[in-house]
Amino acid sequence: MLEAKLDQASILKKVVDAIKDLVQDCNFDCNDSGIALQAMDNSHVALVSMALKAESFQPYRCDRNIALGLNLTSLTKVLRAAQNEDMLTLRAEDAPDSLNLVFESKADDRISEYDLKLMDIDQEHLGIPETEYAATITLPSSEFRRICTDLMALSESVTIDASKDGVKFSCTGDIGNGAVTLRSHTNVDKPELNVDIELSEPVSLTFSLKYLVNFCKASALSHQVKICLSNEVPLLVEYALENQSHLRFYLAPKIGD
């Protein structure tokens, strides 16, 4: 059976909030190392990869591999009943028809309990190759969201150029052009505001802003986001969580005609 307790329901609430507009039905794959999810959006342009490691739960127990087939809209309805600060326990039998969720308030003795029906989901799993990216940019997640939303007001696409001069996000639209350039920057007092650019070779790629803005719904999970680029491969946008857990988004580039 599976029993996994999070100290704060907000972690799962934020993860599901961040991906529910991209993915509707997906398996939560549970094994002794934790709970993982991999799913493509309907148009097969983006891929979501989540790993909540066993260490992120206390306690964590999973005797056999279990796939929890979940409709994320339904899961959202149940998670809405949890306060951010509640402790959240997920429970399931080895061949479950439903997922049991228990929310416990730390402040009082309130315990709420829900059973969510599961579904059989036949999901295609993709092998994601280990990639040495040409450019890795770590920046405040709020900054990345701001850049994406600002540029989306002008255009459907953004071109990301990483060079020794910095990283430039630029777009061209009917009403005009826009560009934001960031350079490496260290804030000793507030490291969450740092911008770090690691570059082994210059990169230039174009992506759909609609998807990037969607990924930015994960900004609540982490102060910083890491974006990794190499020419002619999908962009990786990673929000790191505690205990090596993470939420990653991959986005296929736009390519020349």
């Binding site: 342009v45 799993h125 993709l126 092998g127 759909s208 999908p234 736009k254």
Partner: peptide, 14 residues
């Protein structure tokens, strides 16, 4: 602005 490519072009089915 180019054509949107598909993620399955880069990642293989397991």
């Amino acid at each position: 602005e180019g054509t949107q490519s598909n993620i399955t072009r880069y990642f293989e089915g397991a």
